Computed example of a mutant assay.
Amino acid sequence: MKLPMKFRILTFFAQGETISDSDVFSRIKKEYGSEQQCNTSIIKNHLHSFRANCLLEDADPALDETGKLVQYYKITDLGRKRLSLLPWEYSL
Rank of each mutant, 00 (worst) to 15 (best):
M1W: 06
M1E: 10
L3Q: 04
K6W: 07
I9D: 00
I9Y: 00
L10P: 00
L10N: 01
T11D: 02
F12L: 15
A14M: 13
Q15H: 14
Q15D: 15
G16P: 02
E17S: 12
I19Q: 04
I19N: 05
S20F: 05
D21Y: 02
S26T: 12
S26V: 13
R27M: 07
K29M: 05
E31P: 01
Y32R: 08
Y32S: 06
Q36G: 04
Q37I: 13
C38Y: 04
S41T: 11
S41Q: 12
I43R: 00
I43W: 01
K44D: 02
L47I: 15
H48N: 11
R51P: 00
R51W: 05
A52K: 15
A52P: 00
A52N: 14
N53P: 01
N53Q: 14
N53D: 12
L55P: 00
L56T: 02
L56I: 03
L56S: 02
L56K: 04
D58H: 08
A59R: 03
D60G: 01
D60M: 07
A62H: 04
D64F: 05
T66M: 11
G67H: 09
G67E: 07
K68A: 14
L69S: 10
Y72W: 13
Y73W: 15
D77N: 14
D77F: 09
R80N: 14
L83P: 01
S84L: 14
S84Q: 15
L85H: 13
L85K: 15
L86M: 13
P87L: 08
P87S: 08
W88S: 07
E89A: 04
Y90D: 02
L92H: 10
